[in-house]
């Protein structure tokens, strides 16, 4: 796949993430914190979960891009693990439930609209990193995962995985809204 095409597609996704978040900002706090049952997440909890991942990955990506002396490469090749991770994030038609790591679970944290502002700030940061990444190799720069420092993904795969993860949880937010309307 061409690097430029992939970056463009990720930038466009990020634009849509920000626009969706701006829309959510207009909601009442009671809507944003509504949950179907005691163990399911509210809209804000979904966003906070994404923020927790963002805190880890955006910092890691920024450090690795700035340290890198690699050159831009026009073609991006997915690694075996990277392709698997990125793909596993995308929701299937029949929802594939996933387990959340404990330190990334915001269940019942005290949350307010500041969570949405933080989410938007992270998207702006993501746009800046996508921009910076044009100067380095999306194949050779390696990013540590939050699972283990021994498991590392290519920068390109990490971006894809990271964006797909956001897609996944924004779809979860759509489902929360749908469930709320039924009540």
């Amino acid at each position: 796949m061409q690097s430029e095409k992939m970056i463009q597609s990720l930038v466009e996704h990020t634009r849509q993430f920000i626009n969706r978040a701006e829309e959510l900002k207009n909601y009442e706090l009671s809507t944003l914190t509504w949950k179907e049952n005691a163990t399911s997440w509210s809209i804000l909890e979904c966003l906070e979960h994404l923020n927790l991942y963002g805190d880890f990955y955006l910092r890691e990506i920024e450090t690795k891009i700035k340290q890198s002396k690699t050159q831009h490469e026009a073609i991006i090749k997915s690694g075996f693990l990277g392709a698997y991770f990125a793909k596993s994030m995308l929701p299937k038609e029949k929802l594939n439930k996933m387990k959340t790591f404990k330190d990334k679970n915001p269940l019942n944290a005290q949350l307010d609209k500041g969570v949405i502002d933080k989410f938007i700030r992270q998207q702006i940061q993501l746009l800046n990193l996508l921009d910076l990444s044009k100067k380095v190799s999306l194949n050779k720069v390696k990013i540590q995962t939050s699972i283990s420092s021994l498991i590392r993904l290519k920068l390109g795969d990490t971006f894809l995985f990271f964006v797909n993860h956001i897609v996944r949880h924004l779809q979860q937010i759509d489902r929360i809204e749908a469930a709320m309307k039924k009540v």
Binding site: I7, V11, E12, R15, N19, E22, E23, L127, N128, D131
Partner: peptide
Amino acid sequence: TIDRNQFLKVKGSI
């Protein structure tokens, strides 16, 4: 149609 604060274009896009 875009709502208040929404983006038509962001940094890095063509």
